[in-house]
């Protein structure tokens, strides 16, 4: 069914406020919440994927080379990845305004 992203009028509200666009929360970018950002040093990375599995946002993915990177649209800067990375391949740095 066609569904307007942001209903303006009551006629545009889906019956029962049902949502037929699974995963559409990704239209909202939580990256703006971030005070610190993770930076990967791939020289130290052992490609274990600990950062990927522990990310509460699910915003860390493996790239074609087997290294990991966070999608900054969503990364809230919690710092779990850097804290849990035991080879210390990730550091958290302040966001610059």
């Amino acid at each position: 069914m066609t569904e307007k992203k942001w209903p303006e009028t009551w006629q545009e509200v889906n019956p029962g406020c049902m949502v037929f666009r699974p995963g559409s929360a990704s239209e909202y970018h939580t990256g703006s919440w971030r005070a610190k950002r993770p930076i990967w040093d791939n020289a130290k990375c052992i490609k274990c994927g600990v950062c990927y599995i522990y990310c509460p946002e699910g915003c860390i993915t493996e790239n074609a080379d087997g290294f990991f990177e966070a999608n900054m649209d969503y990364c809230k800067g919690c710092g779990i990845c850097a804290y849990e990375c035991w080879p210390k391949a990730i550091v958290m740095v302040n966001e610059e305004d």
Partner: peptide, 9 residues
């Protein structure tokens, strides 16, 4: 932002 419209519907 949506509640009035939902109740009207």
């Amino acid at each position: 932002e949506i509640f009035n419209e939902a109740m009207r519907a």
